[in-house]
């Protein structure tokens, strides 16, 4: 019965129409799109949801203009260390956080506008051998970093103007933490996934490591994207970039797993598998917002799933001008930011 319940159901005739192209922005000076995100930006008393695009050597801020067009507001040049990712900071305005490095993150910086001296600036937040970073509520950044001997899990609080206010340390697990997610429904809880496939839970207020729970050997390199607590259970949305195909659950890209934090026992709630014809290696990278997941598949297409239904609900085939390279959800609305390697970003209403 369980196997039957967990068998993924795919909609017949995946529809591209459920994604409607709203607008397109093209950075003519960029040729190496690395990441895309959205940020609230206020200028001259007008607060707007802007788009941030990153290539290896610069990060650009785009504001909406009339008729679904976008205008570049500013470009920060970041120097010799390449940008690896944009780190969204929830509930902030006029702050963009980026991670820079070569193979791993070596530096975290803030990009901002200073009204004091009417300048766009950048400031250093942290350096080190950083494995994972996440922006969490109340303008905080949590990160895991390693020295030869030990791992550190730190929180940095930022002021409204982007200054680092104070720091806090969380008790590190033995294994390297590769991803974090805040727990919706429990104010001070944070979870992380580790290099040996465990889920760890912290108390953000006290820094305590509360529990370590195993995800299962069938899903190596699981990454947590989202977590929420309901009815005494901890539900975690995991992605499985390297999961193997199995008869019972197909080729799962994302899973919702229910953990009982008291006993560390778990059960799979829903599998979201690759659409038909996309077997084998799965996806390059993806993003989760609420119950929606999006990922770039190795075929160059973008797939969108409803995680609660376990269904792939939309498929964007590779664009004739080039394969998709990035898939991100905007912070508001049901808007998908789909990026191509040449720096073109398409905004789709979902």
């Amino acid at each position: 019965d369980v196997a039957e319940q967990l068998t993924p159901v795919l909609l017949d005739g995946l529809r591209e129409e459920s994604l409607q192209l709203v607008s397109k922005l093209k950075d003519s000076s960029s040729s190496c799109a690395v990441d895309v995100s959205t940020v609230w930006w206020e200028a001259a008393g007008c607060r707007e949801l802007c788009v941030v695009t990153a290539c290896e050597s610069s990060v650009s801020l785009w504001k909406p203009l009339a008729s679904d067009h976008w205008g570049k507001v500013y470009t920060w040049q970041v120097g010799e260390i390449p940008v690896i990712q944009i780190v969204p900071l929830p509930d902030t305005c006029n702050l963009v956080c980026i991670a820079l490095g070569d193979l791993e993150i070596g530096e975290i910086r803030l990009l901002l506008y200073s009204s004091e001296n009417d300048l766009f600036k950048q400031s250093l937040v942290k350096t080190g051998n950083i494995k994972a970073v996440l922006g969490i509520k109340d303008r905080r950044l949590v990160s895991s970093s390693r020295t030869v001997q030990e791992q550190q899990v730190d929180i940095v609080s930022l002021s409204e103007t982007g200054r680092c206010k104070d720091g806090q340390t969380l008790m590190p697990p033995e294994e390297t933490v590769l991803a974090f997610a805040e727990v919706e429904g429990v104010r001070d809880a944070l979870v992380g996934t580790t290099a040996v496939n465990s889920i760890v839970i912290w108390n953000l207020k006290t820094g305590q490591l509360l529990k370590k729970m195993h995800v299962g050997y069938s899903y190596p390199a699981s990454i947590c994207h989202r977590a929420y607590s309901d009815s005494g259970l901890l539900f975690v949305v995991l992605s499985h970039p390297h999961a193997k195909e199995s008869e019972s659950c197909g080729n799962p890209a994302f899973r919702v797993v229910a953990f009982n934090p008291k006993t560390a026992r778990s059960t799979g709630v829903m599998f979201s598998s690759l659409p038909p014809g996309h077997a084998g290696r799965q996806y390059l990278e993806g993003d989760v917002k609420d119950a929606s997941a999006a990922a770039v598949l190795t075929s160059g297409a973008i797939a969108v799933w409803d995680l609660l239904l376990g269904q792939c609900t939309a498929l964007l085939p590779p664009d004739p001008e080039g394969s998709w390279a990035l898939a991100r959800w905007a912070t508001t609305n049901a808007c998908l930011l789909a990026g191509q390697q040449d720096g073109t970003v398409c905004l789709y209403q979902y």
């Binding site: 429990v186 108390n203 490591l209 509360l210 005494g232 009982n260 008291k262 778990s266």
Partner: peptide, 23 residues
């Protein structure tokens, strides 16, 4: 999910684990 699969469930799991865990 039933209690038999996952063991006894507590709505206050976060507070209880925080009280049990080393400071």
């Amino acid at each position: 999910c039933s209690e038999s699969d996952l063991g006894p469930i507590s709505l206050n799991w976060f507070e209880e684990l925080s009280a049990e865990a080393p400071p």
